[in-house]
Simulated scan of single mutants.
Amino acid sequence: MRRRALIPVLLALGSLLAAAASAGTADAPVLSDARTAAAAGLVDIRTRVPDIAEDIRYAGRDNFVGAPVDGYLAAKCLLLAPAADALARVERQLRTRHLRLKIWDCYRPARAVAHFVRWAHDPGDLRTRAQHYPQLQKSQLLGDYIAPVSGHSRGATVDLTLLRCADGDCTALDMGTGFDFFGARAHTDAASITAQQRANRRLLVEAMARQGFRNYPLEWWHYTLQPEPAAAVIFDVPVQ
């Protein structure tokens, strides 16, 4: 990105970080000056698991924004090396049980988060409401679901699900909602899901926890490596 084109992005990110700090966000992170994935220490998960299943939603239109998201120039999963190594261990252990991971999102550039916030403040764009937030007003997404700063931008958070595989065919387990469904049904311990859906979520929670990933209780698909390798920093290098 040319320097002139980068200036509005940096101004927007600065405003979001200032908003997070003024809102009382504990330990507001610092925006890294890294301009490439290599400089940020981000690696492609396929360098660890070449055939891992991916469906990187924010690189296309099948997401709650309904359009490719700023900063996603390629459908790749980038993570800091410790998180990539831990996720590879989860995958290897699952394969011994005829299970696999399917990844929807990993590292998320800060400019993508700014895109989400702009979208959330646009009351006229309700194209994806029926699929992603049918029981909520768009304004209710700000806070628990869409915040000025995302843990994904620290490079150790992933959104994913489980596949069960047999004879070369893999099928997604029924988790009760799709990815990025905003509402109580997507809470990991939601009371409204079936016993089988709850068991499937618990299977994912336990597999991820064995390698140090903690679930975000409002989103069954969302996990962060603990302790985070770069807890005080967010990155804004594009995914490419």
Rank of each mutant, 00 (worst) to 15 (best):
L6S: 06
F64T: 03
L218H: 14
Q196T: 13
E206N: 09
Q226V: 11
F182P: 04
L11H: 09
A172D: 06
A28P: 11
D70M: 06
R100Q: 14
L136A: 04
D125K: 09
A39K: 14
V237F: 07
A147T: 00
A86M: 07
D180H: 03
Y223A: 05
A38T: 13
I103W: 01
S153D: 12
R4C: 11
R118Y: 02
V69S: 06
R57I: 14
L79N: 00
Q93F: 00
P227C: 10
L218R: 13
A191M: 14
F213W: 13
L31W: 04
E228Y: 00
A20D: 07
A26H: 08
Y145G: 09
P109T: 13
L204C: 02
C165Y: 03
M208Y: 02
P68K: 10
T96G: 11
P134Y: 12
V65L: 14
L173I: 09
R3L: 13
A20M: 02
W221P: 06
R3K: 13
L13I: 14
P109M: 12
A12D: 15
T36K: 02
T36V: 04
R154H: 03
C106Y: 05
Q211Y: 12
A156H: 14
C77G: 09
G71V: 10
L11P: 10
V237L: 11
R111S: 13
P123Q: 08
P109H: 07
L173G: 01
T188S: 11
A38D: 15
P109G: 12
D51L: 11
S192Y: 08
L31I: 05
P29K: 00
V69P: 06
T36P: 01
T25C: 02
R57H: 12
L73E: 15
A130P: 01
Y133T: 05
L87T: 08
H132M: 05
Y72R: 07
T96H: 12
T96D: 12
D105V: 11
T194F: 06
D236P: 04
L31A: 10
R57V: 15
S32D: 11
C165F: 01
P227I: 03
N63H: 04
A191D: 15
V158L: 02
L73A: 15
G124T: 09
T161I: 04
L160E: 02
V90Y: 05
Q140E: 15
L78D: 01
L79I: 08
A207R: 01
H98A: 08
Q226K: 09
L42C: 02
A59P: 03
G168S: 09
R108L: 14
G124S: 05
V43T: 03
